[in-house]
Design a protein around this nucleic acid. Structure first.
Lengths: 191, 191
DNA sequence: TATTGTTATACTCTATAACTATA
DNA sequence: TATAGTTATAGAGTATAACAATA
């Protein structure tokens, strides 16, 4: 995303671009992410990982599939997220009580210990991000965004994670679908 | 992004997630994209391609590098975009008058002919998207988003394209950088 | 030496499909 | 037969680096 050196882009006429909500939404989100990453880079927590953490903290024992559904990612994507959080020692998978296929997700002791700090960093990030708006403006923006999002969608409508996603494009375009192969074994930790 | 079947996600407590601007921005953008892709899928135009088209139309003779800077993508990325637009017959590269390295970008005759229709589709998309807000609300939202975006950034601050981007994450994370190799020849159309 | 266009390569994110164990 | 977790693979998007031609 390298910023234009001096400002060669200044000569370009952006025409109608800034009149599109989508364009502004993207710029805004980009700005938010930049600050998020800059601020939390040391922790290795990304926006999507953070949203997973919050959900797991608030819904102890949550299953991976449920997490994925809640965050709008495929099961395999949820896997990756949980793997990362597990590797960071923040989250653990415990066998589900009544279903030997499933696991429940929990914060580890370390995760519970570190959570407040992480949350504080994110809140600080939020404050920084919102600093450009007055309290009233911020409230208004949140209200409008919520209204925008809550509106009945043409298609399904869950609440996805906090992360970028070239997904939509991929899904909706491309008429060619090629099947795959591959695999080997599963659940190498249950014998 | 498959929508949750019935609504298993409804049982999940989203906790503080909806209080974060970033989270709402992402949801909002997702919704916008969905509609954009659904509506323009037949044309093969993505949000980022559309923004390129608009810039080229308004700035005839624009160089690829300038386009890239204006849209916040690397030169190689601008290449890809222009390649796609060229393949679709919408844009052409003409040798720049006073710089034999450079090319100027122009809409083709066909591009100019099709542009109004594309613009109309995008405007229709915009209307649909904005339908959930009153005219006043929409104006307020745009104003707030602009204010949000226009605020002095900590880092550089150009106006990128209309497309998702896992970019930020990649750039800001990862301490390991491995150099590459590769190439073969360039400009096979200038001998 | 710097810039423009180009190509090769790598990495992130996320999807689909198929498989295993279990229900 | 369906579901949870897993794994392999595909592909979109975008970055970096190196190169040729030109400035």
């Amino acid at each position: 995303m390298q910023p234009a050196a001096a400002d060669p882009a200044a000569q370009v006429d952006y025409a109608s671009l800034p009149d599109h909500v989508g364009y502004l939404l993207r710029l805004a989100q980009l700005r938010v992410w930049e600050d998020f990453y800059a601020r939390l880079s040391a922790t290795g927590i990304t926006p999507s990982l953070y949203s997973a953490l919050v959900l797991i903290e608030r819904n102890p024992g949550l299953q991976q599939s449920r997490l994925g559904e809640a965050l709008g990612v495929a099961r395999s994507g949820a896997m990756t997220m949980v793997d990362r959080l597990e590797r960071q020692g923040l989250v653990e998978r415990r066998p589900a009580p009544h279903d030997r296929r499933a696991y429940g997700l929990f914060l580890t002791a370390d995760g519970r210990r570190r959570m407040p700090e992480i949350v504080a960093m994110v809140q600080q990030h939020d404050r920084q991000i919102n600093a450009v708006l007055s309290a009233t403006e911020h409230r208004t923006l949140m209200t409008l965004l919520k209204k925008f999002v809550a509106a009945p969608a043409q298609r399904g409508n869950s609440l996805p994670a906090m992360e970028g996603d070239p997904t939509v494009s991929r899904q909706k375009r491309s008429g060619s679908r090629t099947p795959r192969t591959g695999r080997r074994q599963s659940k190498p930790r249950e014998e």
